[in-house]
Write a protein that binds this DNA or RNA. Structure first.
Lengths: 376, 376
DNA sequence: TTAGGTTAGTGAACCGGTTTACCGGCTCAC
DNA sequence: GTGAGCCGGTAAACCGGTTCACTAACCTAA
C-alpha cells in the first residue's frame, strides 16, 4: 500500500475519463452511463483501494462535512467533576453529528482580546457550521461568524437578534418547579445560592426566582440571594452568614448539584440536619445528586436533547432548510426530581421512596424542533 | 462581508502575482521580495480581510493540521459518570493538540464488522495522524492505519510490534503499590474485584496482582479474583459470595473507584465496617474516591500526562522526529493515595489525616518522552 | 565587452477531485 | 432527407492555494 490511488488512476485503469469515474463513484448520472462501464469503474476502484480524498472533495464541493464545536477546554481539564453537564452535552453533540454524517472538529474559544485575523481563522473553510457551547456574553466569535453568514448555534445562551440560532434550558420552568415544590411543602423562607456572576444563565434564573416567590406571595429578601463562588472561603462565609442567623431560611436553592455538596458540608458543621432543619435542592440532576446523602432533590436538564437539537439546527441551517417555517431556537424542557433532601420545614422526610419521583414539569415550547423536545 | 477574498484577489489588488502574494503572506522568500512590495501585499490582504482557505491549503501542502481522535462516543453518552478518566484524557488531548497548533477531529470507532472501504474513510486526508483511545484488542483500524503509513497512537493499550506507538499506564506499578500498602498493614487475605473481561488492561493487572502476592509469599486464591460487571445482579452476587464466607478476605482491590462505591453499598448491607472489617482500595483517584465515606485509598493515574504524551508521539511521528533516538511508547507513572478506607485488619483507621497522603511510587520508565513523565 | 551573479518577481503546473458544456452517433418522426 | 432528441461519454475549467522553473533588469568582475 504505497501511494494513495487517485481518481485519475481509477479512470485510467478503467479506460474512461475522470468525469465518468467521478459520476459512477458518486452514483450520479444514472441515465448517462452504461451498466457495463459502471461495473468497470467500480471494479477498478476496488482493485486500487480507491477512496476519494476528503480535502480535495471539500475544496470543490465547497463543504467539508465537518461541524465545528467551540468550547472552553481549559476548565475541563482542571475540574472535570464540576463539568458533568458539559461533558454530557458534548458527547451528545458528537454522537448526533456523526449520526448525520458530520465529523466534529474541536476549537477553543478565542482569547477575549483576539484581533479580527485570529477570529477569521475559524472561518477557513474547514468547518461548515459551528456550535458554540456556553458562549460568553457578547461573544465576538459569534458575531463574526454571523457576519460571514456561517451558521452558528449557541448552546446554553440566548441571543436577542432575530436570526440567531440557539438552544437553551428552560431556566424559568426549572426554578418554578423547585420553588413550587418547596412552597407546597410549606416553606416560606427560601434562599438562593445562585451562580457566579460571569455565568450567563444567572440573570435568567434569579429573575425567575424573584418572580416565583412573588407569584406565591412570598417575600423576596435580596440578602438571601448570593453567588456560589466554587469551594472558596468566600462561599463558606456566605453559607455561614446565611444559616447562622436566628431568622434563617428553611430552604435553599443552589446553583447546581455540585454546589449542594458544599452546602451539605456546611450544614453538617453547623449541626443542621437535612432536610429537617434545612431543605436543599440542586440543579442538573448529575451523578452528585444520587450519591449525596440524603439524596438530592433537583431538577433535571436534558443535555442529550439539547445537544441533538443544536446539531440539527446547525445542519438544517446549512441545507437551507431554515426558512420561516423552521425553528431557529429551542428551549429544552426540565423535570423535577424529588428525592430525600426536601421535607416540610421542621419535619423529617417522608419514608424513603422506592425510587426517585420524577415530575414532568410542563415547559414552554417555543420550538417545533423535534429533537429538542422529544422523549425523556 | 459578502464573498471570501481569495489569494488572487489580494494579488490583483496589490498589483503583484499570486506567487508573490503567497510568499509574502507566508513569510517566505525573504530575500527575493522588496520591503515595499511586502507592504503593499500586506495592506491589500488586510483591507480585503483575506484569510487563506484552510482546505485549499491542506490540499497543496498535503497536510491538514488536524489530529484525528478515535474514541467510543456512544458509551460516553450513556454513563458519563463512569467515565471520568476517559473524559480527562480526552480533554488533555484536545488541549495539547491545540497548544501545538492542531485541531482535534473526532471519530467514532468503526463497527467491528466494518469492511475495508469503511476503514479507508479514516484515511481520507482530513487528519494527518490519529490517536485511538482504548482501542479494542486486535484493532483493525489501527492495523489499517499502520498499513497506510499514517501515524496512529494507541492510548491505554500496548501493541507488540516494533513500530507501534502507544501510551499506557503502569498497571504493574499500580497494583504493586496497592498490594504493597495492604501487605504492610498486615493483610494476608486479599481479593481482587477485577475488570470486565473485554477491557484490555485486565490481563495486565491480574498478572501483576498474582505476581505481587507471590512475591510477598501470600497465597493466590483464584476464586478471589472475580470480574466487576457494572452494577448488575451478578456483581452483587459475587460480592455476597466473596464477603459472606467465614474465611473471607480482609482486603479488596477493585477495578476502579466507581466499582468501590458498589462495594461500599454491599458492605453496608452485610454489616461490614470499612476499614475495620474490610479494607477497600480503588484505582484512578477520580472524584468518587473523595466523596465516598470513608474516603477511598486508591492509586492515581495521570490521564493529563498520558494525553499530552499521546499527542506528542503522534505529532513527532508526523514531523519525522521519530527516529531510533525518539520514544515510540510511554508508560505513565502511578501514585498511591492513602485515605481512610484501609487499615490493619480488625482495627479502625488511624485518626483522620490532615489531607490525603500521596506516595510517589517509582514507576518503570520505558520512555524518554518528557510529557509522559514530567511533573505531577 | 561579456560571462556570471544577484535582485525582484512571474507564469504555469499542480494538488485531487467536481462540474459545465459539448460532442459524435444513432434513432425516430415528419 | 433532415431536424430533434437521446445515449454514452469526454475535455477542460475550476476550487484556492503552493511551488518549480524561469526571466528581465541591473550589477560586477575579468
Amino acid at each position: 500500500m504505497k501511494q494513495r490511488a487517485t481518481l485519475a488512476d481509477v479512470a485510467r485503469s478503467a479506460g474512461v475519463s475522470k468525469t465518468t469515474a467521478s459520476l459512477v463513484l458518486n452514483g450520479k448520472g444514472e441515465a448517462n452511463i452504461s451498466e457495463e462501464t459502471r461495473q468497470r469503474v467500480a471494479t477498478a476502484a476496488a482493485a486500487l483501494h480507491f477512496r476519494p480524498h476528503g480535502v480535495a472533495r471539500a475544496l470543490t464541493r465547497r463543504r467539508a462535512d465537518v461541524l465545528g464545536i467551540v468550547c472552553a477546554i481549559d476548565p475541563f481539564v482542571e475540574q472535570v467533576h464540576h463539568h458533568e453537564f458539559e461533558h454530557t452535552l458534548l458527547s451528545a453533540i458528537f454522537s448526533r453529528a456523526m449520526e448525520r454524517g458530520y465529523n466534529p472538529l474541536i476549537y477553543n474559544y478565542p482569547p477575549l482580546d483576539a484581533g479580527p485575523e485570529r477570529l477569521l481563522r475559524y472561518a477557513d473553510g474547514r468547518s461548515d457550521a459551528f456550535i458554540l457551547i456556553f458562549p460568553p456574553a457578547e461573544c465576538i466569535l459569534l458575531k463574526r461568524l454571523h457576519a460571514l453568514a456561517i451558521p452558528a448555534v449557541a448552546v446554553m445562551s440566548r441571543e436577542t437578534h432575530a436570526e440567531a440560532l440557539w438552544v437553551d434550558s428552560d431556566h424559568e420552568a426549572g426554578i418554578q418547579a423547585l420553588v413550587g415544590h418547596l412552597a407546597e411543602l410549606g416553606h416560606q423562607k427560601i434562599a438562593y445560592l445562585t451562580g457566579p456572576p460571569e455565568e450567563e444563565a444567572v440573570a435568567a434564573r434569579v429573575a425567575a426566582f424573584r418572580k416565583a416567590l412573588t407569584e406565591r406571595g412570598l417575600p423576596v429578601r435580596e440578602e438571601w440571594i448570593e453567588p456560589y463562588l466554587w469551594d472558596t472561603e468566600e462561599t463558606h462565609n456566605t453559607l455561614k452568614r446565611l444559616l447562622c442567623q436566628p431568622d434563617r431560611p428553611t430552604a435553599l436553592l443552589t446553583w447546581y448539584d455540585f454546589a449542594a455538596g458544599d452546602v451539605y458540608l456546611a450544614a453538617r458543621q453547623l449541626n443542621l440536619r437535612i432536610p429537617e432543619d434545612l431543605s436543599v435542592v440542586g440543579f442538573d440532576d448529575t451523578h452528585s445528586a444520587t450519591i449525596l446523602s440524603p439524596a438530592l432533590t433537583t431538577v433535571r436538564q436534558d443535555p442529550e436533547g439539547m445537544g441533538r437539537a443544536a446539531v440539527d439546527l446547525a445542519l438544517n441551517a446549512l441545507s437551507w432548510e431554515v426558512t420561516t417555517s423552521h425553528a431557529r431556537t429551542a428551549v429544552s424542557p426540565i423535570q423535577l426530581v424529588v428525592r430525600d433532601s426536601t421535607s416540610p420545614p421542621g419535619r423529617p422526610a417522608e419514608p424513603a421512596m422506592p425510587t426517585s419521583v420524577v415530575v414532568q414539569w410542563t415547559a414552554r415550547q417555543e420550538s417545533d424542533l423535534s429533537s429538542g423536545v422529544e422523549e425523556h
